[in-house]
Simulated scan of single mutants.
Amino acid sequence: MILPFDFQKDPFLILDFTEKNPELTDLDLTNTAVFSDYVFGKIRQAGAVVGVGGYGEHRVIYRRSPHFNQMEESRCIHLGIDLWAAAGTLVFAPLNGIVHSFQDNNNFGDYGPTILLEHVWNDKPLYSLYGHLSRSSLAGLQVGMAVSAGQRIAELGPFPENGDWPPHLHFQLMTDLLGRQGDFPGVCTLSERERYLAICPNPNRLLNIPGLG
């Protein structure tokens, strides 16, 4: 369990943020309140308790922020899984590990407060990233601090402190951090897709959300 929901029992909604969703065409994604109303309106309409955004998805929503469009080729491939839920929702560690690093990535459309944990999985290093947290989630953390599976580690942040997104958790796995601390790309370009997916395994291996792949 990473959020206080049971994906085998609790109703959830898989949200589509690709160009296949015509509802995004006229939605002002730069207005976070409008974007948030859309996301949570869809969740309520479906009778769900949490929204889910897929791994490896080619998305259009990153056009909202220059953070993803600073290079010649824009970033558009989602490298984690998003869990859309109310600000203040608790976040739990899925595995035993230690705090690798943390920081507030404070840019519009960025992660906001972010925690990275380091684990051992099948006798190999594995890292997990938790983005869009509350600033209070970083209080008291220390690099190297031990974390147990099932331990509360954070809570979802409200916008704008969460990177100015509708409240959600970006959860991502990495086998190699490429020397980074407190941050790691959660979205890559099309040309980088194979390289990044090779070191960012599907988080659903841990979440086991039915129908998500």
Score class of each variant (00 low, 15 high):
T18V: 11
T25E: 06
L141C: 10
G140H: 12
L190H: 05
F184P: 02
S36C: 05
V187I: 12
L141F: 09
I199W: 07
N162A: 01
G186M: 05
G131S: 13
H132A: 09
G54P: 10
G213R: 04
Q151W: 13
H100P: 06
H168D: 05
P203Y: 00
C76Y: 09
M1R: 03
A139P: 03
R75G: 01
D10S: 06
F5T: 11
G112D: 15
L116E: 03
N96G: 12
N106S: 12
N96Y: 06
E19H: 09
L79W: 04
T89C: 03
T18S: 15
T25Q: 15
V143L: 03
N105D: 11
A33F: 14
P201E: 01
P167C: 01
A146H: 02
T175H: 02
T25K: 11
V120H: 08
Q8K: 15
Q70K: 02
D123L: 06
L3V: 12
G112W: 06
H78C: 03
F40G: 08
I199S: 06
I81N: 06
D176R: 06
L141A: 13
P166G: 02
N208R: 08
N107V: 05
V99D: 09
G54N: 15
G144Q: 14
I209P: 11
S101P: 00
I14S: 06
F40D: 10
R195L: 02
M71Y: 15
V52Y: 12
P4F: 03
A46V: 08
L138F: 15
L117T: 15
E192I: 01
I153F: 09
E19Q: 11
L3Y: 12
S136M: 00
A46I: 00
F184T: 01
D6S: 10
S191C: 01
P22T: 09
H132E: 00
G186A: 01
G186W: 00
F92V: 00
D37A: 05
H119Q: 15
D26A: 07
F159N: 04
I115E: 07
T30Q: 07
L206T: 07
L95R: 14
A48T: 14
D123Q: 15
G97L: 06
Y38V: 03
I77E: 12
G186I: 04
F7T: 12
